[in-house]
Amino acid sequence: MKKRWIYGALCLIWMFVIFGMSNAQGEESQGMSDTIVIFLSKILPFVSYNDTWTFIVRKLAHFSEYAILGMLYYLFFSTYRIIGKKQILILIGCVFAYACSDEFHQLFMEGRAGQFRDVCIDTAGGATGILLWHWIYTYLLKYKQKRMPHEI
């Protein structure tokens, strides 16, 4: 029960982090992306400061922040001890719903635009996080059963 509260709190905190990033105005958001691209261009010879790399960084940010959200959703839902195909689809649906609400929120921010493409990228990131965590969870469970079959 304690884990459920912790994972639930982590989900809410991460959702607020995403909301906070989406709450940034367009110029501020662009500045964060530009800073990352400039940093990468200094350490990676194939990266140069241009619109293409800024676009890539922005979309990878979408993907990765929702991959983390997907993992957190999975951890929370796993405390109910029922994770199957149906539950994974429900979790992906939850990620999709939050991504839609996030892009809707961006419609009201100066210099930002809600885009269905970003909803798709967010959902793909969340699904990747969910499936990755499911694979890890399943692997660890099988490993534990092989190591200590008498305790299960």
Results as ranks from 00 to 15, higher is better:
residue 1 M to Y: 10
residue 1 M to W: 11
residue 2 K to T: 15
residue 2 K to G: 13
residue 3 K to C: 11
residue 3 K to I: 11
residue 4 R to T: 12
residue 5 W to F: 15
residue 6 I to H: 06
residue 7 Y to W: 14
residue 8 G to E: 10
residue 9 A to D: 08
residue 10 L to G: 02
residue 10 L to F: 14
residue 14 W to G: 03
residue 15 M to C: 09
residue 16 F to D: 11
residue 17 V to N: 12
residue 17 V to K: 08
residue 20 G to Y: 10
residue 21 M to L: 13
residue 22 S to D: 01
residue 23 N to K: 08
residue 25 Q to D: 13
residue 25 Q to N: 14
residue 27 E to Y: 06
residue 28 E to W: 05
residue 28 E to G: 07
residue 30 Q to Y: 00
residue 32 M to N: 06
residue 34 D to H: 09
residue 34 D to N: 11
residue 36 I to E: 02
residue 39 F to S: 01
residue 40 L to A: 04
residue 41 S to Y: 02
residue 46 F to S: 06
residue 46 F to H: 04
residue 48 S to V: 01
residue 49 Y to D: 12
residue 51 D to P: 03
residue 52 T to R: 09
residue 52 T to A: 07
residue 53 W to E: 02
residue 53 W to G: 00
residue 55 F to C: 01
residue 55 F to N: 04
residue 56 I to G: 03
residue 58 R to T: 00
residue 58 R to N: 02
residue 60 L to K: 02
residue 60 L to A: 05
residue 61 A to S: 06
residue 65 E to N: 05
residue 66 Y to M: 04
residue 67 A to F: 03
residue 70 G to L: 00
residue 70 G to P: 04
residue 73 Y to S: 00
residue 73 Y to G: 03
residue 74 Y to A: 00
residue 75 L to P: 04
residue 75 L to R: 07
residue 76 F to G: 01
residue 78 S to Q: 15
residue 78 S to L: 15
residue 81 R to A: 15
residue 84 G to C: 10
residue 84 G to A: 13
residue 85 K to S: 15
residue 85 K to M: 15
residue 86 K to H: 05
residue 87 Q to T: 14
residue 87 Q to M: 13
residue 88 I to S: 01
residue 89 L to V: 13
residue 89 L to G: 11
residue 91 L to V: 09
residue 93 G to Y: 07
residue 94 C to T: 10
residue 96 F to P: 06
residue 96 F to N: 09
residue 97 A to E: 13
residue 97 A to I: 15
residue 99 A to I: 05
residue 99 A to S: 09
residue 102 D to M: 01
residue 103 E to P: 07
residue 104 F to I: 15
residue 105 H to P: 08
residue 110 E to W: 10
residue 111 G to T: 08
residue 111 G to P: 03
residue 111 G to N: 06
residue 111 G to S: 08
residue 112 R to M: 06
residue 116 F to E: 12
residue 118 D to I: 03
residue 118 D to F: 06
residue 119 V to I: 12
residue 120 C to R: 01
residue 120 C to V: 09
residue 121 I to A: 06
residue 123 T to A: 11
residue 126 G to S: 04
residue 127 A to S: 13
residue 128 T to S: 11
residue 128 T to K: 04
residue 129 G to H: 01
residue 129 G to M: 03
residue 131 L to H: 00
residue 132 L to G: 06
residue 133 W to F: 12
residue 133 W to R: 00
residue 134 H to Y: 14
residue 134 H to N: 09
residue 134 H to F: 13
residue 136 I to E: 09
residue 138 T to F: 14
residue 138 T to R: 14
residue 139 Y to S: 10
residue 140 L to F: 10
residue 141 L to E: 08
residue 141 L to Y: 08
residue 141 L to M: 12
residue 146 K to G: 09
residue 147 R to H: 12
residue 148 M to S: 14
residue 148 M to C: 13
residue 149 P to G: 02
residue 151 E to L: 14
